[in-house]
Design a protein around this nucleic acid. Structure first.
Length: 581
RNA sequence: GCGCCGAUGGUCUAGUGGCUAUGACUGGGGCCUUCCAAGCCCUAAACCCGGGUUCGAAUCCCGGUUGGCGCACCA
């Protein structure tokens, strides 16, 4: 059993992850989060909120998971998210049909499937693998389609990323942030991709959770006021150049910016923040690296892109976060399709005096003269260069008809005007997190097995521990009466509700022997257990047992909720929680 | 989508044409005055789905679903 198998087996058994629709045989690419899984996932998301929403001030929004067609026409997903595939009838290999013909026609990727089929036939293209006959080209689109409304309805799509919702709301967001760059919006939610063949458990899903931030910044100023915070942060950087050498570099963020390895401060800051986030939820620092997209793998619109990758036992390095400077690509695309300017007015520090040539047709005279054509005539006049207007006879061509314009219906002059700012299209820096992959990584990196010394007549056995960081543990405190007896159950139940009132995630467990219950709680990663025994009835003290060390301290029931709270959240030292046993 | 290999209680597993389907762990109830899967008693729980072959199928054949691996795909 490799680690993946062990982790998934435990996750299934203990209620972290279940295959969806199991009752009906299941369906690939979907997973249920069980009671502990949902809690763990939500706590991971909560830390993300804490960092990106609360600390950075990028407010969370919520947009529909179903989108209308234009949104994804603009984003390029309807056209570009699908590929023409073509299979060999003999050996079954699938190929990109456009790649097969790209040496014959210059713009293969613009061809329709019928045209591709025709070219393949006419040029007698055979399977590159086995020379077999090729089948018909078909479109494989990774978008889930749906109908909006009754009947044939309106074409809708499940979103393949949460990002578009934030771009579409750009003008509202700009207004909300009082039109000052930089500003950002975030979204945590489900996205959908109809993967050809989802595999690798929760690593590649058809429905998955993303946490994304879209941060709109000034294209001329990509500095970050708070970059100093990460000056000394050392990262495992796997830059384009480092990949050529095959060696990860350990350098500070400051140096990476200064040497131009990371394109600019703003991007570097997001990388620093991502580093903090991943380690805080429990990704092992030595199993984390930041890999730069190589020039040829980067999406055409991005200017620099870094993936946070984590090391996994079975799958090797897995991408869990993508941090890209998407430039103004998305806003421009939505502006073009919606025919709405998506820009923000930026005032200059000092107004500029700009001299320009202005043409002012006199509509009061043009109207009666040209009636319905007046508007197009005026447009034509405005487009004329100065020397043509200064001629004795002003001529314009409207609808391929030459028109002579009488004197006095058009004025023109050099004007000096004050320009106090301009409309700019912001650039977008996008950190995009795959929560499900991070979730799996947290499980795998927390998973540990420890050999327990053999007792008399017994085999050596393994203790399985999920070493979750306190902040993400789905169960924080286990309350355990030493024996299943009324006189111990009652105070244990009281303890349970007292701790819940403090806001701690408590599980009460009285079934089986105490050793079994400790092991059970080790397996779900409960950091501390509180045990009530007969001494408790005498002197009001209980035992607190620490998961990682299995050490125990004895402490008073009085104020125990604060002690446990401090252990959980304030890094209180365990030894100081009571007297060692 | 293609190819190869698998699918038996919650988990792991035995079973290769003839059972009432093996075992372990786990789970649940109880006993137990003392802390790391302890012990004792009781108990629950499975042949992926659909066809076919056969007197008889968990077992053989076909199809599907699903899991793993390889190929392809991963904007």
């Amino acid at each position: 059993m490799d680690k993946y198998e062990q982790v998934i087996e435990l996750a299934k058994r203990r209620g972290f992850l279940w295959n969806s629709f199991e009752l009906y045989g299941g369906s690939a690419g979907f997973y249920d989060y069980g009671p502990l899984g949902s809690t763990l996932k939500r706590r991971i998301e909560q830390i993300w909120r804490e960092l990106f929403v609360i600390q950075e001030g990028f407010m969370e929004i919520e947009t529909p998971t179903v989108g209308i067609e234009n949104v994804f026409v603009a984003s390029g997903h309807v056209g570009g998210f699908s590929d023409p595939l073509c299979e060999c009838r003999a050996c079954g290999e699938a190929f990109r049909a456009d790649h097969l013909v790209d040496r014959i026609v210059p713009v293969a990727d613009a061809l329709s499937n019928d045209e591709l089929d025709r070219i393949i036939r006419e040029n007698q293209i055979k399977c590159p693998e086995c020379e077999g006959e090729l089948g018909e080209t078909y479109e494989f689109n990774l978008m889930f389609k749906t109908q909006i409304g009754p009947g044939s309805g309106r074409q809708g799509y499940m979103r393949p990323e949460t990002a578009q919702g934030m771009f579409v709301d750009f003008l509202r967001l700009a207004r909300f942030y009082r039109e000052k760059l930089p500003f950002g919006a975030t979204q945590i939610g489900k996205s959908y991709r109809n993967e050809i063949s989802p595999r690798q458990g929760v690593i590649r899903l058809r429905e998955f959770t993303q946490a994304e931030a879209e941060i709109f910044i000034d294209p001329q100023d990509k500095s970050h006021p708070n970059i100093g915070r990460f000056a000394d942060t050392i990262l495992n950087l796997y830059s384009d150049a480092a990949q050529e050498k095959g060696e990860v570099e350990k350098i500070t963020i400051a140096e990476a910016v200064q040497r131009g390895i990371i394109a600019h401060e703003f991007l570097a800051y997001q990388i620093g923040l991502t580093n903090i986030f991943l380690q805080r939820v429990g990704v092992a620092p030595e199993m984390l690296r930041f890999r730069q997209h190589k020039k040829d793998e980067m999406a055409h619109y991005a200017m620099d892109c870094w993936d946070a990758e984590v090391s996994t036992d079975r799958f090797g390095w897995v991408e869990v976060v993508g941090i890209a400077d998407r430039t103004n690509y998305d806003l421009c695309a939505h502006a073009a399709v919606s025919k709405t300017e998506l820009s923000i007015y930026r005032e200059y520090p000092e107004p500029k005096m700009v001299t320009r040539f202005v043409v002012k047709p006199n509509m009061g005279k043009l109207g009666p003269l040209f009636k319905g054509k007046a508007k197009t005539v005026a447009e034509a006049l405005k487009a004329l260069p100065r020397e043509d207007l200064e001629k004795e006879e002003i001529k314009v061509i409207v609808d391929s008809e030459e028109i002579i314009i009488p004197k006095g219906v058009v004025e023109f002059a050099e004007e000096t005007i004050k320009v106090s700012g301009e409309n700019i299209v912001p650039h977008v820096v996008e950190p995009s997190f795959g929560i499900d992959r991070i979730f799996y990584t947290v499980l795998e990196h927390a998973f540990d097995e420890e050999a327990m010394p053999a007792k008399e007549d017994t085999e050596e056995e393994a203790r399985i521990i999920m070493r979750f960081r306190n902040e993400v543990s789905p169960v924080q405190i286990a309350v355990l009466p030493l024996l299943t007896r009324k006189e111990l159950i009652e105070p244990a139940r009281k303890m349970e509700s007292k701790l819940r009132e403090k806001g701690l995630l408590v599980s009460y467990d009285d079934s089986g022997t105490i050793g079994r219950r400790y092991r059970r709680n080790d397996e779900i990663g409960t950091p501390y257990s509180v045990t009530i025994d007969y001494d408790t009835l005498e002197d009001n003290t209980v035992t607190i047992r620490e998961r990682d060390s299995m050490k125990q301290v004895r402490t008073s029931i009085e104020g125990i909720e604060d002690t446990l709270y401090d252990l959980m959240y304030k890094s209180k030292d365990f030894e100081s929680a009571g007297t060692a046993l």
